[in-house]
Amino acid sequence: MSTVDIELRKVRKVYFKDRLEIPVLEGLDLTIAAGEFVVLMGPSGSGKSTLLHLIGGLDSATGGSVRVGDAHLEKMSERERTAWRSRHVGFIFQMYHLVPVLTAAQNVELPLLLFSMSSSQRKERVRTALEVVGLSDRADHRPNQLSGGQEQRVAIARAIVTDPDVILADEPTGDLDAKTSEEILELLNLLNSEFGKTILMVTHDPRAASHGQRTVHLDKGVLDREELNPARPRGAAAMVS
């Protein structure tokens, strides 16, 4: 079980719109220990998604450094970041974004098409991933035959099927009712505690936040405060850092 830490130093992100500079992140520092489950909160438009995308290598920072495990993202090209992402990062989105014409199993298999792997190996991986999210019996269903919660489980299976080190979840329960949200959050907890995934999750929901070990608050371009969740003590690795 490889665990990976994340370190952001003096990260700046400036968007340009009509030649106007729109600063979103202004010298942000963040350290996430290997195997930690961190919740990111903040007002709408504060740059939470931006931060997630920077860590996942979907976008590059205007300044500062972003390190995920051994990967120094600020030194990598877009191509390199994309290749790296396919092996090390799993994204989960609010709207699941499944391919409607593919079955649950096929959706989960999609990221594996980038791996040189026999089809039986791929099938095995897909089976395991669906088992972890508890959807083995829905493998051949299409997204429109699944509930929102089930769709999000498929999306989670798709995110973990490549066995990434880091899971980045952008409001994964934003579209779900309380009970289903709870199940999804339990699932993320399981991935963190049993499989050692380092998780960064964006949420607006304080109850959702209570599933993380630590909550950081983003406002006006920096993390202005953080609180530990006493109910969920940090793992040993996190204590050391």
């Binding site: 979907l58 994309t82 290749a83 992402r85 994204f91 989105f93 999609l110 980038l114 798709r158």
Partner: peptide
């Protein structure tokens, strides 16, 4: 999402 997954 294809790109996010790692498709070039």
């Amino acid at each position: 999402v294809f790109k996010a997954i790692g498709f070039q």
